[in-house]
Nucleic acid binder design. Structure first.
Ligand SMILES: [Mg+2]
Length: 467
DNA sequence: TCTGGGGTCCTACTGCAC
DNA sequence: TCTGGTGCAGTAGGACCC
């Protein structure tokens, strides 16, 4: 905006008529989210360095309290290093289901401010409050009251950035956060507003890394051009930038550096893929072991798929070898499918293309994409079977035709639906694939079982689940 | 005892249709 | 030096985000 408008024209201009605020975007970001939830649920942890993440040999830090940050602990840091830096830390494995629950309550708070809420992960969200503001309050007032409400109702702190765009509000929320200043925690302002006329002064001194889409690799390439700050990017000739990072990213970056970010706040983005992956405590060479793990991963992925009432055409298998090189193999089916039997067969074939080379495998993953709504007959059958099971007609949800069950893949959809239902009511361990009931079997995988790395022990695993 | 697991998006390349 | 150019779908890799 080059409006050049004076900061404040009058004491009580009607709010919402200010054309230099075409939109008012809030970015809300929970402080140390997972770790704060743990402190909330166990107040004895208050004031202590708490680190949430993978507790096994290959775990990493997912979140940590500011008390832990004083010791140099950061998210994405290997847990081994975190323990080294902060031996007194309380290290917890994380409870995904609990965080999701708190996140839902958080979103309920957001929705009382505006229906235009776009969640990013579990702990942050953009809110377009342009309309809400026009009803009376200004951006700062909305941000302050939202923050107070979250503290009040959830007992958790958050930081809020207010700006004319996603870019600016997001960067403003960073400035609102607590900081560590030589060894102790400094509370942040909690809310930071960047008005349009302040944007250039706010953005230009920031490091390029602050821009959305600039990670370590791009930062390194820009560094070689002597580009360090947002101002450096903004002042770079367009051609140079596009040659270094590609035309699409180049144009995007140039726009962001100029403070130009028209991206709308979009509520309820449908997922484009679902998947599960697992890093083993030790590299796995045995192809049979890999296939058994694959069955669990497919089972988990298809369950996620059906839970959202969708089916998939593309199956991708991912393998990361011990030396961290990674390969993927994908196959797209002519028709969408949603059962472990159909998709598992494809996954197994893909795994055979990349396993058995003698190379140790560190990580195995399965992802399902090219998602479609599950076909109508299937959705109706699913609804019917769940209802029938609920009526106590014990035979209702079973038996896809004992004569030809294996020959009719779509019949397995009903079986899968029934299994999901049983798991919902009796727990995830109550039904597992037959191939997992041997000595190496154990319970089925489910979301959050191995969130930030293996839980310890050997690759085969048998005991030693944490909490 | 370095380097999660959930994703999105972009790019480059291939085979194929037109 | 030349069946060329283009568009599309599928595939693989990689950067990036929380
Ligand atoms: Mg956060």
């Amino acid at each position: 905006m080059v409006e050049g408008r004076a900061p404040m024209a009058g004491p009580r201009r009607p709010k919402g008529s200010d054309t230099s605020w075409p939109r008012v975007i809030l970015h809300v970001d929970m402080d140390a989210f997972f770790a704060s939830v743990e402190v909330l649920d166990d107040p004895r942890l208050s004031g202590r360095p708490v680190v949430v993440g993978g507790t096994g040999p290959r775990g990493v830090v997912a979140a940590c309290t500011y008390e832990a940050r004083v010791f140099g602990v950061r998210s994405a840091m290997p847990m081994a290093e975190a323990r080294r830096r902060c031996p007194g830390a309380v290290v917890l494995p994380g409870r995904h289901a609990r965080y999701a629950e708190v996140s839902a309550a958080l979103h309920a708070c957001f929705h009382r401010a505006t229906p235009l809420v776009e969640g990013i992960g579990l702990d942050e969200a953009f809110l377009d409050v342009t309309g809400a503001r026009r009803n009376g309050a200004d951006g700062r007032e909305l941000a302050e009251s939202l923050r107070a409400r979250v503290a009040d109702e959830l007992g958790l702190r958050c930081s809020v950035g207010v700006g004319r765009s996603k870019l600016v509000s997001k960067l403003a929320s960073v400035k609102a956060k607590p900081t560590v200043v030589d060894g102790h925690v400094q509370p942040g302002p909690g809310v930071v507003v960047v008005a349009p006329e302040e944007e250039a002064g706010f953005l230009r001194p920031l490091p390029v890394r602050a821009l959305w889409g600039v990670g370590p690799a791009t930062e390194r390439r820009l560094e070689r051009l002597g580009v360090q700050t947002v101002a450096d990017v903004a002042d770079l000739p367009a051609g140079v930038l596009e040659r270094v990072v590609g035309p699409t990213t180049g144009r995007l970056l140039a726009a962001l550096a100029a403070g130009d970010d028209p991206r709308p706040v979009v509520p309820d983005r449908p997922a484009k893929s679902v998947g599960h992956e697992e890093t083993f405590a030790r590299d796995v060479v045995d192809t049979e072991v890999l296939h058994r793990r694959l069955v669990r991963l497919v089972d988990a992925a298809t369950r996620s798929l059906r839970r959202t009432g969708r089916s998939a055409r593309t199956v991708t298998v991912k393998v990361r070898y011990g030396d961290f090189t990674q390969v993927t193999r994908a196959r797209t089916l002519p028709e969408p499918a949603d059962t472990p039997q159909q998709l598992g067969a494809v996954a197994a074939a893909l795994l055979d293309e990349v396993a058995g080379t003698g190379q140790g495998v560190r990580l195995l993953g399965v992802s399902l994409s090219a998602l479609a709504a599950a076909d109508r007959a299937r959705q109706l059958r699913l609804a019917f079977d769940v209802a029938a099971a609920g009526e106590g007609d014990g035979a209702g949800a079973a038996a896809p035709g004992a004569r030809s069950a294996l020959a009719a893949p779509e019949a397995w959809s009903a079986v899968a639906a029934a299994v999901d239902d049983i798991r919902t009511r009796f727990g995830d361990g109550s039904v597992v694939p037959a191939t997992l009931t041997g000595p190496d079997g154990g319970g089925a995988r489910h979301r959050g079982e191995a969130q930030w790395g293996p839980s310890g022990g050997s690759a085969g695993r048998s005991g030693g689940r944490d909490g």
